[in-house]
Simulated assay, not measured.
Amino acid sequence: MEPQLLYSVTDSVATVVIRHPEKRNAMTAAMWRSLPPLLERLAGDPAVRALVLTGEGGTFCAGADISTLRGSPEEAQRLAVAAEEALAAFPKPTLAAVRGHCVGGGSQLAAACDLRFAEEGALFGVTPAKLGIVYPASSTRRLVSLVGPATAKYLLFSGELIDAERALRTGLADEVLPEGELGKRVAEFTRILVSRSQLTQAAAKEFANGRTDRDAHWAARARESGDTAEGVAAFLERRQPRFDWSVPRGCP
């Protein structure tokens, strides 16, 4: 089967699947290159309110396809960073659903998602020290923001894998589910996400990612959107709110 990224949209949730089963869903150069334009299309689709990234079968992603590093490791890293940054900049909530190995470039992608839910038995690792690769500064900062300096150094210095429970304790995972329960929990949680205000989510994501100079911008969007009025009215009327604001194409 040709290595590729598959995607579908169901009930306002886009699911992107990393598919390269012969190499534990390792990312080829073509796969890295295809991710940013795919994310751009999904970000501009008003039917999409959240995104799930996962791997086909029992593995999330075993990293970059090492054979692609022989020719130009610098180019391979550039493509990986571009894909990671495109995922981090996706303007709607993103969730990595992790089974099995989430290693190297796989951890880069998972860390770039807003949330990470893992199945028991999942293994996480950041492995450039095993290959003599300098981990990108942007990826290192993102890892540090998730797990703190000490755990980031442990992962980067050693290249050792950690289990899902340790990932949960250190902040690399947000929830750990029993075997067979991950899909159900992801579906349940994304139903919650798509029912909430995209306005709130988009502003919160921007602020949480360090863009703290746009209070006035988001206050204006809130006044224009009607989401606040709808949320208050729904609360008082004891009904589910119907939020209409959606992330505009090209946001922010």
Results as ranks from 00 to 15, higher is better:
E2F: 12
Q4H: 15
L5A: 06
Y7T: 13
V9Q: 07
T10E: 13
T10F: 07
D11N: 14
D11H: 12
A14M: 00
V17P: 04
V17S: 02
R19C: 00
H20W: 11
H20Q: 13
P21D: 12
E22S: 13
E22A: 14
M27W: 14
A29L: 15
M31S: 05
D45L: 06
D45G: 06
P46D: 15
P46K: 02
L53K: 01
G55I: 00
G57S: 00
T59S: 08
C61E: 02
C61A: 15
A62K: 11
A64R: 05
A64Q: 08
I66A: 14
S72W: 01
E75C: 09
K92S: 00
K92Q: 07
T94A: 12
V98C: 03
G100N: 00
G104I: 03
E119L: 09
G125T: 07
L131P: 01
Y135N: 00
P149L: 12
A150M: 11
Y154S: 04
S158C: 06
G159Q: 02
L161Q: 15
E165M: 10
R166S: 09
R166K: 13
T170Y: 05
D174L: 08
V176W: 01
V176Y: 04
F189G: 05
Q201C: 03
A202C: 05
A203W: 13
K205C: 03
E206N: 09
F207R: 08
W218C: 01
A219C: 14
A219D: 09
S225I: 11
S225R: 05
S225Q: 04
G226M: 06
A234G: 14
F235R: 15
R238A: 15
R239C: 13
D244N: 07
D244W: 01
G250C: 06
